[in-house]
């Protein structure tokens, strides 16, 4: 059992990694979600901007996350824009997942009954208020399972950032295993931590489902 006691001594590395992963994850999904909602609002009317945004969203859907991170971290310095691993990783997570959130919400917006929108317009809602009060809440409640899936994908995508030298949970396991040479135990700890985080996310989503059911939007 000496390996486990070594791991216990190295708990600070894991703890820092966990904090980094959780920080990256929560900060990026909050920003990505807000950005995604803004994108969908921009897509409401048919303008040149919305066409360009559609193109951008489709572009993101065909790219692996790591390529975007590479572009920001290794590619942009050539244009004189140098970012730390943290900024680049966070920015990549935000942009990438905002596109996916926007795509999920847009898919639901397309099949939303127009009656709500017309009724709200007749009541004199301005476009922004109409979007914030009528359209967006319904979209979010209805697309909850898909948004939840995307959250778990976002959590897993944070692990990619270890490749661009960001010190998060996977990097912590890697540094512990290379120092003490106990790869199995170090990675088992980290995999269990990822598992626990995603279980917590799923429980939170179930709770959200109950909220949606109470409002009559959803079936549990």
């Amino acid at each position: 059992m000496t390996e486990w006691s070594i791991l216990w001594d190295a708990r600070e590395i894991f703890f820092n990694g966990l904090i980094a992963t959780l920080g990256l994850f929560s900060l990026s999904i909050i920003c990505a979600f807000v950005l995604g909602c803004v994108l969908v609002y921009q897509l409401e009317d048919d303008s040149v901007l919305s066409k360009a945004l559609r193109l951008l969203i489709n572009l993101m859907r065909t790219l692996p996350f790591l390529i975007l991170a590479y572009l920001l971290y290794y590619g942009l310095p050539q244009l004189g824009l140098r970012m730390s691993a943290w900024t680049a990783g966070l920015l990549a997570l935000i942009v990438y997942h905002a596109a996916y959130f926007a795509e999920i919400l847009r898919g639901c917006r397309l099949i939303m009954p127009e009656g709500y929108v017309e009724a709200a317009k007749a009541h004199g809602f301005t476009p922004l208020r109409l979007y914030l009060r009528i359209v967006l809440p319904q979209l979010v409640i209805k697309t909850r399972p898909l948004l939840g899936n995307q959250l778990i994908i976002a959590l897993k995508d944070t692990a990619f950032l270890t490749i661009i030298t960001l010190q998060e949970l996977t990097a912590a396991a890697n540094s512990v295993q290379s120092t003490y040479f106990i790869p199995t135990q170090a990675f088992v700890v980290v995999i269990v931590l990822y598992w626990l985080i995603s279980i917590c996310l799923e429980l939170a989503l179930k709770r959200a489902a109950r909220f949606g059911a109470k409002r009559g939007f959803d079936y549990v």
Binding site: I152, L155, K156, D157, T158, A159, F160, T162, I163, L169, T170, A173, N174, F187, V190, I191, Y194, W195, I197, S198, I199
Partner: peptide, 9 residues
Amino acid sequence: ATPLVTFVL
């Protein structure tokens, strides 16, 4: 739940 990067490593 496990990221592919972690699992490959």
